[in-house]
């Protein structure tokens, strides 16, 4: 039985590639019908891969049609056809280059000018931050130590780290002190640090408070500041954070900002 199969395959070798693939598929189908889907023993593909001579002959044959493909098994034949089809269909509108996929961090957004916000960046986001945003600095608002992985990435990419640790407005009795927020704002709105990414853990609460205070420096109405805060904090908006944004005493930062000519913050 195996010998007759080999004969059949040898015969196929003289057919052109499309007919060959169709015959192989037909053969597969017939065998599957006969033996059930789990049959492997008499499968054409198996027969080919078990016989080195046959394998070599088939590869030579396929190489004739697809000289650029050095190595592939029969299972890939379908894929090759798809690719060709795809090339033919899309050659008219194909762009000369392929866009590299990037993965922005969760809750990523522009804030103003070259100030950005997000949740904690993970290794899959590094390429995005380095190549697309071309970050100069990162301002992190967590008190915990910054992960080694992120530090190494920043060193390689030449990104400066600023850490202003705060622990968020949580009931009861935990509040972000105003002077700490002022310090964070001084880093964030200083053009020398731009482009800068502000982040905490989820990019919702602490980052939201800081961005809310940036909006106050831009004289936004509180209603729209809260609206933006809630958009990013959804579904975990905290009333205390919104209160904090409203109550934050901006005298010191406004004075510093004016002295350094940081205001108005450029769009």
């Amino acid at each position: 039985m195996e010998d007759s199969l080999k004969g059949k395959i040898r015969q196929m070798m003289h057919e052109d590639s499309e007919t060959l693939v169709r015959s192989l598929e037909r053969e597969d189908g017939v065998l599957e019908l006969k033996m059930g889907l789990d049959s492997g023993k008499f499968d054409v593909h198996n027969a080919i891969s078990e016989d080195d001579d046959l394998k070599q002959e088939l590869e030579d044959l396929i190489r004739k049609f697809y000289p650029e493909k050095k190595e592939f098994t029969e299972e890939d034949v379908d894929d090759v056809f798809d690719e060709d089809e795809y090339k033919a269909q899309s050659s008219a509108v194909r762009r000369s280059s392929v866009v590299e996929e990037v993965i922005p961090p969760e809750n990523f957004s522009h804030v103003v000018g070259e100030i950005y916000r997000s949740s904690f960046p993970r290794p899959e986001n590094f390429a995005f931050l380095q190549k697309r945003i071309k970050l100069k600095s990162i301002l992190v608002l967590i008190p915990e130590e910054y992960p080694q992985e992120n530090r190494e990435f920043m060193e390689d990419a030449g990104i400066k780290l600023f850490q202003v640790g705060m622990s968020g407005n949580k009931e009861p009795f935990v509040n972000i002190p105003s002077d700490i927020l002022t310090r964070a704002l001084e880093v964030a709105i200083n053009p020398a640090n731009h482009p800068i990414l502000i982040h905490c853990n989820r990019g919702k609460h602490r980052t939201g408070c800081l961005v809310g205070c940036i909006r106050r420096l831009q004289n936004w109405s509180l209603t729209m500041i809260f609206d933006e805060y809630r958009r990013f904090a959804f579904p975990k908006a905290r009333a205390l954070d919104q209160q904090f944004i409203e109550m934050y005493d901006d005298h010191v930062i406004k004075k510093n900002a004016h002295e350094n000519n940081w205001l108005p913050i450029k769009w």
Binding site: S109, G113, T223, E228
Partner: peptide, 16 residues
């Protein structure tokens, strides 16, 4: 006390 009001759902997408 001048307050400016951005439009509903306003957000920067990219620079400018």
């Amino acid at each position: 006390d001048q307050r400016i009001v951005p439009p509903l759902n306003f957000c920067p997408v990219e620079r400018y």
